[in-house]
């Protein structure tokens, strides 16, 4: 707080009052992620409250196929790790490695989505669809919102990979990669809770 202001006060002649825009963006994005935590909280609360309202239809616990879920979990976790490797490469100035690790992350993310879509389609075939009951709707909305976040992240990541190819590692692209890597880690954290509350508590 005061330090930031004081720092600028001492930096007379240095773009007085000019603040590092990347620092601002990272803080702003952090706040946005917190608002996203609240968003997921509401979806979690709705899922928990409505999870037993199955209206005589199929029950989630009977339809969960854990092998797929476990695969999704480790794929996403690994992609979170590889996004960290991408940031490491960036900090070492290695743009080609950065782009490669981002590509690996994106591929893993796409695999996650593919598995999740398959999971959903199978459930729908078994009569557990979005419109079946309050419980089923809550499941698909909660898990699906996470999947939507991942999908949008993939598009964003691809866009950044193009920008990196064109412009290399600059202050601006560095800032963008920091932001998206934060986003990606956040999505893995949300998945931890999805796994725990939806799937593990579902089959226990």
């Amino acid at each position: 707080m005061a330090q930031a202001a004081a720092k600028h006060g001492h930096d007379h002649g240095h773009d007085h009052g000019h603040h590092d825009p990347q620092e601002l963006k990272l803080l702003g994005f952090w706040f946005f992620l917190i608002s996203d935590v609240i968003l997921f909280s509401v979806l979690f609360a709705t899922f928990i409250v409505l999870r037993d309202n199955t209206a005589g239809g199929p029950i989630l616990s009977e339809l969960i196929k854990m092998p797929g879920v476990i695969a999704e979990t480790f794929i996403l976790l690994t992609s979170s790790f590889t996004s960290g490797l991408a940031v490491l490469a960036m900090n070492q100035g290695k743009v080609k490695q950065l782009i490669s690790w981002l590509a690996v992350t994106a591929v893993l993310g796409a695999a996650f989505i593919a598995l999740e879509v398959t999971e959903f389609v199978e459930m729908i075939h078994e009569g557990f669809s979005y419109t079946t009951s309050a419980a089923s709707g809550a499941f698909f909305t909660l898990v699906g919102t996470h999947g939507l976040h991942v999908s949008l992240g993939l598009i964003w990541m691809i866009g950044l990979m193009f920008q990196l190819k064109k412009r290399g590692i600059t202050d601006v692209t560095r800032g963008k990669i920091n932001v998206i890597s934060l986003y990606w880690h956040f999505l893995d954290v949300v998945w931890i809770f999805l796994l725990s509350i939806v799937y593990l508590m579902g089959v226990m």
């Binding site: 409250v49 409505l50 209206a55 979005y130 709707g137």
Partner: peptide, 15 residues
Amino acid sequence: GAHFFTLDMGGNPMM
């Protein structure tokens, strides 16, 4: 066609 707050199929308007 979801049923979060409907009167049927397990929906709960109070939520």
